[in-house]
């Protein structure tokens, strides 16, 4: 009888676990069959971006290599001076790599795509270009209007100085160019993500403990020690905002997942969330 009662009790317990695990939004919890109670605790911290970043491209092009270099140096010097003259607190210009290439013109590209002869390939211009990042820190101190004015100042002076601001790339006629359709000018970033994650983990652990205690109370068992913890951060996937393939590409290219920053194209609080799976023993 005692065995039967024990079996019944066990079945009821498993049914309860099944019900609870079905409602994943409320409680993500289940008990391991033999190893105690396992729960998944979620911790979430929201942080307002403190950095705004704009990408820029300085280009010098010429049929003579010397011309391309002269133009590049001139454009670079003027761009640097233009941004410096803005005297925006916290603005820094970060070099992001230089490249040298000889590219086809739009007409030549179009001809090549159509399987036609590409003329004047000898007259292709040499391009010297450098990507730069225009980074303003401490934007959390500014209100939206002030921030907008600051960004517009940078965009304007960049355009005046001949810097290509944003992610816009050269269009090939007849080919859809998503960057031309929507040219994202600014990326907002939260910094100190690791510190924020620590806070989130604390919250996740507390959440897990609360869930486990609740289960123990419901099932009439006593919660024991923590047997195992499996923590994972899903903040990147959970960060809200419009999906932007360019930011995604940029993030993957720069391996941002391991960095201390997190980006979004929208100026709003970014959620940093983590999840931990904790297994408690049953005493």
């Amino acid at each position: 009888m005692s065995n039967l009662a024990h079996l019944m009790q066990r079945m009821m317990f498993l049914t309860l676990i099944g019900c609870l695990s079905g409602n994943t939004n409320e409680l993500t919890v289940f008990a391991a069959e033999n190893n105690g109670i396992s729960v998944i605790g979620v911790g979430k911290v929201e942080a307002r971006p403190s950095v705004v970043e704009l990408t820029g491209l300085i280009v010098g092009q010429g049929q003579l290599a010397g011309d391309a270099v002269t133009k590049f140096h001139g454009n670079r010097r003027r761009a640097e001076a233009a941004f410096k003259n803005l005297k925006i607190p916290g603005l820094e210009v970060v070099e992001d790599g230089m490249s040298l290439y000889s590219a086809m013109t739009a007409s030549q590209m179009q001809a090549a795509m159509r399987g036609m002869a590409v003329n004047n390939t000898q007259a292709q211009e040499l391009s010297v270009s450098e990507s730069i990042k225009l980074r303003i820190t401490g934007i959390e101190k500014l209100n939206t209007q002030e921030l907008l004015e600051t960004i517009v100042k940078i965009v304007d002076s960049g355009k005046d100085a001949g810097v290509i601001i944003g992610n816009k790339t050269q269009s090939i006629p007849g080919v859809y160019n998503p960057s031309a359709a929507k040219n994202t000018m600014a990326t907002f970033k939260v910094i100190n993500v690791q510190k924020l994650k620590e806070e989130a983990f604390q919250k996740a652990i507390a959440d897990a403990k609360a869930q486990a205690e609740k289960l123990a109370r419901l099932t009439g068992v006593k919660l024991g020690k923590v047997i195992s913890i499996n923590g994972e951060s899903d903040s990147q996937n959970n960060s809200s905002g419009v999906y932007n393939p360019y930011i995604g590409r940029m993030i993957s290219a720069n391996n941002v997942t391991n960095s201390d920053e997190q980006a979004t194209s929208l100026l709003k609080a970014i959620p940093i969330s983590v999840a931990v799976r904790v297994t408690y023993a049953i005493d």
């Binding site: 280009v59 010098g60 010429g62 003579l64 010397g66 011309d67 002269t70 133009k71 001139g74 454009n75 003027r78 355009k159 005046d160 100085a161 001949g162």
Partner: peptide, 20 residues
């Protein structure tokens, strides 16, 4: 789309500035 100054004697590009 840029203004270029070419030296009259040496034909070298003295400077160029990108303009909108």
């Amino acid at each position: 789309k840029e203004l270029e100054a070419i030296d009259r004697k040496s034909r070298k590009l003295n400077w160029a500035v990108s303009l909108p």
